[in-house]
Design a protein around this nucleic acid. Structure first.
Length: 980
RNA sequence: GGGCGAUUAGCUCAGUGGUAGAGCGCUUCGUUCACAUCGAAGAUGUCAGCGGUUCAAAUCCGUUAUCGCCCA
């Protein structure tokens, strides 16, 4: 049956996926021929996710490694699974409910979770099919899920991942590595949950800075002196206030102090005194102390900073250091609090605290609602406006003139100094100089929730934390000692930097979808941490318990991915065999989120590293290097790419892009190029088929014993490329492996070997050549299989007798013993001659179809032997009709020089003599230039003395070759001139 | 502000000390039976600038410029 002209990727891919599945080709341990294990855990995609280019890239690399090891006979596992993605999944399901006009809170927690599981059963498997389309050889029978085995999990979700998560929490709690505490956390007012530092994106946005006066208590005054850089006095006045700058006026309500730098002389006279917060009912104005702290920057704003410990991270630090009370102002939706006692009462208590008459416990401070009654219940931005208006109305805003450039766009523009245009009317002085509040227009960094995209509110709340400082040591040591290697190396530096400055990790989330924290409280608030309620109840001796409603950060559970997917805490066979895993392949953007946390957690829990190598890669960008985003419209859908070019082309592109630390720019032109490469391979095999190469062929691990140089040569080239590919893959240089295979398959096999074979199929070497070609093409399929599994599996099935799948083909181990230096040198010479003839013909515009006679002016013994052995190849590929030895070149000949000889193509009257002369001169000049450089080096005695011998020898050899070539060219030029 | 990285052909990128490569694009020619998703031939570089180390620097060191990414 004749092969089609092209590989039909669309139909073949689906068929081959089914074939692999039917054969169980990717089950753990499939094709095992040795005891060494090789295991990779997939970075679990979100259960809500669908395949994007990042996944496609990441999983292509993993699949290459996995297929390579499986073919090499390792006991291989590629573990699949999905992450339950707390916020994202809850969001998706809530959105579904919203379509029916329902809210999460219309359901009980259990009923809502049932809805989530229902959704998961219907839509949670999308990415599995998509990974299969990419050709990923995961062991799907082991598919894991980070919520498997949780209470309420339906049938089919009976795994024990939940047990692992709960066990780890309890263990870490008992070891004192997890604690509950009131700390400032990033609060997402949309999802009404805390999130970790890493889930916050700081984005520069347009903002404003207001300047307000905080009057000194009791009408006190001081002399305020401000100097410029040279020390000259620029302000010297009596003041009864301290000037504060803020970007968040609404938080003034919760101020606990005003801080200045200890070295700031301007405020030295009033440090320790009290000032008044200029908001709220006049009769209940709160007084707060003026304190010193290293945090305020004397050069920024007025140099004085208001301290709102409950709503700002920096202020929190100051408040902690100085024992300043922290008053929470907002509720879970970032609206001003409406709970607790009336403002007058709360303000009185806060006043007593400020005067040092009493202190507050954390809980008492948190219960105190210092939002004035008329602002209660307002959104934070509405409250901001009200605060600003009230202060300004009272005359306590710092004023400036309307033309002050600090006002930005709001400033009145001064009239142009020269040539006012028709519209550039003079702005009257009274308008320019009118007093207005100083509201600076400036860029501020604002925190946004990476999921909700709303402004994050720093909020003082009770949360659970991992005391990361206590578990970071072993994670650092593992990398420092080299037990875990992170690639590229720059990743290690980043890793150190983050871990050395680690902050407590907030792991509680105020969500329903996730692993509920295994802690119960009795009526006195005492905590009982246990794996089950029964065990907690046993500890609590008859007290009535309620469970902590919060769930754990999704990353806490995915931090256990390596052991959790292998059945831990049960001591399974798989755990014994496949843990620690071989390598983790993931994006550098989750180095902290996930990689570092897996390191910390695995080491803390089972005292072992989770993986030996970490391969980090960047973001896949568009062809111009821009991030792919929906708003830019430059998102490339991998499934569309697969539809258009085939999965193999996409995969090969991914491999070719994957240089260590490289930037990933995805260009469809490049994908098209690699699709062409698959076609090239296809057609080489088709050519072989048409020439009976596969007839009677069965898979052979060893190459045939070849006599013909050309066959010995291609066998040697195959051996060399196998060594290159293995060396590259061993170092995760996917791009080098791809490049080597591309150059070999296209540049050596298709461009030369197939062409060389054509004239041999009829001669005495026919049988040997067919056997060699079958073997070489087999090797192409095998070596390309990890990168291009579909077309290679298809070709494998269409050619020869196969005992097993290409996916299970034996990866070759041959190397140096097949490298035939003699054959390689000879074929290099033959190719040089053919290229010389072709180049000369093309440059002198000899018609391609014309077969020429060739004369041999002189040729050394090696050349004569090479030519006689390969004459059929030369005559076919250089289009030579006859060869004859001559004593001198006939008039009007083209000259072709080769190593050890000169040939001529007599073409009197056909060619342009001047053009031929130019060509020879140019070639000669090039050789001369190179020769000059090398001779210059050799003339330097220091070079000869210091450089390694082989470099010097190489230079000397090159001089000989170049000298000889130039002599031949000169002779040819002289000959041309003498005839002309 | 701190950390990490990049700058090589028109474009996208390889290149860890021995005198610079690939793919795409471009130019010319060509449908002889594997392939026009092809073949043959060809042109193309102050390796960002400056300084240093070295017999030798795209490569190592320092510095400047520009551009990224991460963290404040």
């Amino acid at each position: 049956m004749a092969m089609d002209k092209n590989f039909d990727a669309t139909t073949a891919e689906a068929r081959i996926v089914a074939l692999w599945d039917r054969e169980g080709a990717f089950a753990a341990g499939a094709n095992k021929r040795r005891d060494d294990a090789f295991s990779i855990m997939i970075p679990p995609p979100n259960v809500t996710g669908s395949l994007h280019m990042g996944h496609a890239f990441n999983n292509t690399l993993q699949d290459i490694l996995v297929r390579w090891h499986r073919m090499r006979g390792f006991d291989t596992l590629w573990q699949p699974g999905q992450d339950h993605a707390g916020i994202a999944t809850q969001m998706v399901v809530e959105r579904e409910l919203a379509k029916e006009g329902k809210k999460r809170t219309d359901f009980t927690r259990e009923a809502f979770l049932a809805k989530v599981w229902e959704w998961k059963a219907q839509s949670g498997g999308t990415i599995i099919g998509q990974l299969q389309r990419l050709g990923c050889s995961l062991d799907w029978s082991r598919n894991a899920f980070t919520m498997s085995g949780a209470p309420g999990a339906p049938s089919g979700e009976e795994g024990n991942f939940h047990d692992a998560v709960i066990k780890v929490f309890v263990d870490m709690y008992n070891k004192g590595l997890i604690y509950r505490g009131k700390r400032l956390v990033n609060w997402d007012p949309h999802f009404e949950t805390a999130i970790s530092d890493l889930e916050v994106e700081n984005i520069e946005t347009d903002g404003h800075m207001w300047h307000f006066k905080y009057p000194l208590a009791g009408g006190a005054t001081y002399r305020y002196i401000e100097k410029d850089k040279e020390g000259a006095v620029i302000v010297d006045e009596m003041r009864d206030y301290i000037s504060i700058a803020t970007t968040r006026p609404e938080t003034m309500l919760g101020d606990g102090a005003v801080a200045v730098h200890p070295s700031d002389e301007r405020y030295a006279p009033i440090v320790g005194k009290l000032c008044e917060i200029p908001v709220g009912p006049k009769e209940h104005r709160r007084l707060i102390p003026i304190i010193t702290d290293e945090y305020p920057d004397p050069l920024f704003g007025s140099g004085a900073v208001k301290i709102t410990g409950a709503h700002d991270a920096n202020d929190y630090g100051v408040a902690k250091r100085s024992g300043i009370p922290m008053y929470r102002l907002m509720d879970t939706r970032a609206q001003m609090r409406a709970d607790g006692a009336a403002y007058a009462e709360a303000a009185a208590i806060a006043g007593a605290v400020a005067r040092g008459e009493r202190t507050l416990s954390e809980a008492e401070a948190d219960a105190l609602n210092l939002v004035p009654d008329h602002l209660r219940g307002l959104d934070r931005y509405a409250a901001r406006k009200a605060v600003i208006d009230e202060i300004t109305a009272e005359g306590l805003a710092v004023m400036t003139v309307a033309s002050d450039p600090r006002l930005g766009a709001a400033a009145v523009k001064p009239a142009p100094a020269t040539a006012p245009g028709p519209l550039g009317q003079e702005v009257p002085d009274q308008v320019r100089d009118a007093p207005v509040p100083l509201v600076e227009e400036k860029k501020i960094m604002q925190p946004f929730g990476d999921r909700s995209k709303v402004v994050i509110e720093p909020m003082l709340t009770d949360q659970w934390f991992v005391d990361a400082e206590k578990v970071v040591g072993p994670a650092l040591d593992a990398v420092r000692s080299g037990r875990v290697k992170i690639m590229p190396e720059s990743g290690e530096k980043t890793y150190y930097h983050w871990l050395e400055n680690i902050e407590p990790w907030c792991i509680s989330r105020q969500l329903w979808w996730g692993h509920q924290i295994p802690v119960w409280y009795d009526e006195d608030g005492k905590m009982y941490c246990a794996p089950t309620e029964t065990e907690a109840q046993d500890m609590a001796l008859g007290k009535r318990l309620t469970r902590d409603p919060d769930v754990l950060d999704t990353w806490f559970s995915s931090g256990l991915w390596p052991i959790g997917t292998l059945g831990w805490p049960e001591q399974t066979d798989e755990l014994q065999k496949y843990f620690p895993t071989s390598v983790l392949v993931t994006g550098q953007d989750i180095l902290f989120f996930w990689v570092a946390r897996m390191m910390m957690m695995q080491l803390a829990v089972v005292d072992q590293i989770p993986f030996h190598h970490v391969y980090l890669h960047g973001l896949v960008r568009d062809a111009k290097g821009k991030k792919m985003s929906k708003s830019l419209g430059n998102v490339v859908d991998p499934l569309e790419i697969i539809d258009e070019y085939g999965a193999d082309a996409l995969r090969f592109t991914n491999a070719a892009m994957a240089s260590l630390g490289g930037v990933l720019k995805l260009d469809t032109q490049r994908i098209a190029g690699y699709r062409n490469f698959t076609t090239k391979l296809w057609n080489a095999c088709r050519f072989a088929e048409m020439n009976g190469v596969w007839e009677g062929h069965a898979t052979q691990s060893a190459p045939p014993a070849a006599q013909a140089t050309v066959n010995r040569w291609i066998i040697a080239e195959t051996a060399r490329v196998r060594e290159t590919v293995d060396a590259a893959l061993a170092e995760y240089r996917f791009n080098d492996a791809a490049q080597a295979l591309y150059a070999f398959v296209w540049g050596k096999v298709c461009d030369w070997y197939v062409e060389f074979a054509k004239p041999l199929f009829d001669g005495e070497d026919a049988a040997e050549t067919r056997a060699t070609m079958a073997w070489v093409l087999d090797q192409c399929m095998v070596l390309l299989h990890p990168m291009m599994p579909f077309i290679t599996e298809e070709l494998w099935g269409l050619t020869g007798q196969r005992d097993k799948l290409c996916a299970h083909a034996d990866w070759p181990e041959y190397g140096a013993e097949l490298v035939d230096a003699e054959a390689m040198r000879e074929m290099r010479w033959v190719i040089g001659l053919i290229e010389g003839v072709r180049s000369a013909r093309a440059q002198l515009r000899v018609p391609v179809g014309l077969k020429l006679n060739m004369v041999q002016l002189d040729l050394d013994m090696q050349g004569r032997a090479a030519l006689s052995r390969n004459m059929a190849l030369v005559t076919k590929l250089a289009r030579i009709a006859s060869l004859e030895e001559v004593g001198s070149l006939p008039k009007g000949s083209i000259t072709v020089t080769v190593e050890g000889g000169t040939f001529g193509l007599p073409l009197e009257g056909v060619i342009d003599i001047a053009a031929e002369r130019d060509r020879l001169e140019k070639t000669c000049a090039k050789a001369e230039k190179e020769l000059g450089g090398i001779e210059g080096r050799l003339r330097n005695p220091k070079f000869v003395a210091s450089a390694p011998d082989e470099v010097v020898d190489e230079a000397r050899a090159r001089v000989l070759v170049l000298t000889e070539e130039m002599a031949r060219l000169r002779a040819a030029i002289t000959q041309l001139d003498s005839v002309a």
